[in-house]
Simulated scan of single mutants.
Amino acid sequence: MAAWRARAIEMYPSDFRDTSEDVRITLLAARCSSRRAEIADALVDLLVALADEINARAERGVEKQLTAELKKVRGKEGILAAAGRVPQCDSSGLSTAAVARTTGRCCRRC
């Protein structure tokens, strides 16, 4: 097959006209068969490259998302809301036990 293909590649179109019909059909069939295989191989290579690119983009997206998640502080909104509230002190100057344990003070005035 390789010899027929090599012979067909070297020939000019006018050379095909000078050969017998059986030889011409055989040469063209060999050339077409090998060319079809080359095209299929090239398409598979392109498909693999495309899949690799899609995979790389997906990995970058996941890494970006994980990095953003790691930067988040769990419960940050609740901590900020609790810190923003001014605890009310009773007559002895003590606030609720939960706030006192969290801040170490009874209120902002203390």
Rank of each mutant, 00 (worst) to 15 (best):
A100S: 14
S20H: 00
E69K: 09
L27D: 04
G93Y: 03
D52I: 08
S95L: 03
R85H: 13
A3D: 15
L50S: 14
R60I: 12
A81L: 06
C32L: 13
A82E: 07
L27P: 04
R109A: 11
R108N: 08
D15E: 15
T26W: 01
A56H: 05
A83N: 09
T67L: 14
A97I: 02
R109Y: 01
V99Y: 13
D18Q: 14
E77Q: 09
A29K: 09
C106W: 06
V23Y: 00
D15R: 11
T102I: 04
V73S: 10
S33K: 10
R24S: 04
E59K: 12
V44P: 00
D41H: 03
R109S: 11
A6G: 04
R74T: 06
S33L: 14
A81E: 10
C106V: 00
M11S: 06
K64Q: 15
C107R: 02
A51C: 02
R105S: 11
R31A: 10
R35T: 13
A30R: 02
A83D: 10
V44H: 02
R36K: 14
S34A: 13
A51R: 04
D15S: 14
M11V: 03
T26S: 13
R57T: 13
C32V: 03
V86R: 13
L46F: 02
A49M: 07
A82W: 04
S14N: 06
P13Q: 05
E53L: 14
C32T: 11
S91Q: 02
E38H: 07
T96F: 05
